[in-house]
Simulated scan of single mutants.
Amino acid sequence: MTGLPQGSLGLLEHEVAVRLLASSELARLAYVAGDGTPRVMPMMFHWTGEELVMSTFAGAGKIAALRARPAVAVTIDAAGPPPEVLLLRGDAEVTDVEGIVPEYVLAHRRYYGPEQGAANVAAVDHPGTRMARIALRPSWVGVLDFTTRVPGPLRAAASGARS
């Protein structure tokens, strides 16, 4: 896996990517807001094996912004040492859902455990609840583990090369 270039979808199988996609680290969703300025929103997520799914409640400002400009970047990272970083890019697809997004339930279970996760979901699952499912099928993947995969300038510095 270390030989794959940044951007390769094959990096989703890298041990760092697999570990972070199964973790309880937050995904940080970067998008362009309706006023044209950048935003980064920390969000719980669920990885389906093909899509990174995040959820929000109806009426959230990011819904219209993502529909208008679906290109997003996501990072999921662990501080380390050494730090581990999964970078994803692609277009987000937003789907309105009556009730609770199924992956929202799965995310709460992973982040909080079965009992607390179920309690968290029950607290917001009422008649009339509406959510949006935000799904990203990555079109670009990057992995940094700062051991075998480091950013270009650091790799050059470590090997003594000049930039």
Rank of each mutant, 00 (worst) to 15 (best):
L136C: 01
A123L: 00
L87Y: 06
G142R: 05
L11S: 01
R67S: 01
H126M: 13
A78W: 12
T129G: 10
G36K: 05
D96A: 15
Y104V: 09
T95S: 15
H46R: 06
S24M: 05
A92C: 02
M43E: 03
G99P: 06
A58E: 05
T48W: 02
G34C: 04
V97G: 06
G10Q: 10
R69L: 09
L88C: 03
K62Y: 01
V40T: 12
A22K: 15
A68K: 12
Y112F: 14
G59N: 08
H14K: 06
M41R: 14
D77L: 06
L26Y: 13
L29F: 11
D77T: 04
S163N: 13
L12Y: 11
I100K: 05
L52M: 03
L66D: 08
Y104F: 14
A71K: 11
P114C: 12
F57E: 06
T147K: 12
V32S: 07
G117R: 00
D125S: 11
R137K: 13
L29T: 00
R67K: 13
E50T: 12
L29V: 09
A122M: 04
R162I: 15
A73K: 06
D77A: 11
V150P: 09
A71D: 09
R149Y: 04
R19K: 15
G10V: 05
P70D: 13
T129M: 11
Q6A: 13
E115H: 12
Y111I: 03
R28G: 06
V40W: 08
H108E: 10
L11T: 01
E15G: 14
T75L: 09
P102N: 01
P138E: 06
A92Q: 07
P114G: 14
A132K: 06
S139C: 03
P102K: 00
V32R: 01
E13V: 04
A60R: 08
M43P: 11
A135D: 02
A68D: 10
F45S: 05
T147V: 15
L21S: 12
R19L: 13
Q6L: 12
P127K: 11
G117I: 05
V105Q: 04
S159V: 04
E93F: 09
V150I: 15
D145E: 10
E25G: 08
T95M: 14
F45R: 03
A123W: 05
R162G: 15
I76P: 01
T148P: 07
G99I: 07
L11A: 07
R149I: 05
I63C: 02
D96S: 15
A30H: 02
V94H: 02
L12F: 07
A119I: 07
L29A: 03
A107M: 00
P153R: 14
A132Y: 09
V85F: 01
V121K: 00
A78G: 13
R109S: 09
T48R: 00
Q6D: 04
F57I: 14
I100V: 10
G113D: 14
E13W: 08
Y112K: 11
G36Y: 02
I76G: 00
R110V: 07
P102D: 03
K62P: 04
Q6Y: 01
A132N: 03
L88N: 03
V74I: 11
Q116K: 15
G113W: 10
E93T: 15
L12N: 12
H46N: 05
A30K: 03
G90I: 02
V143W: 04
P70A: 12
H108P: 00
A118Q: 11
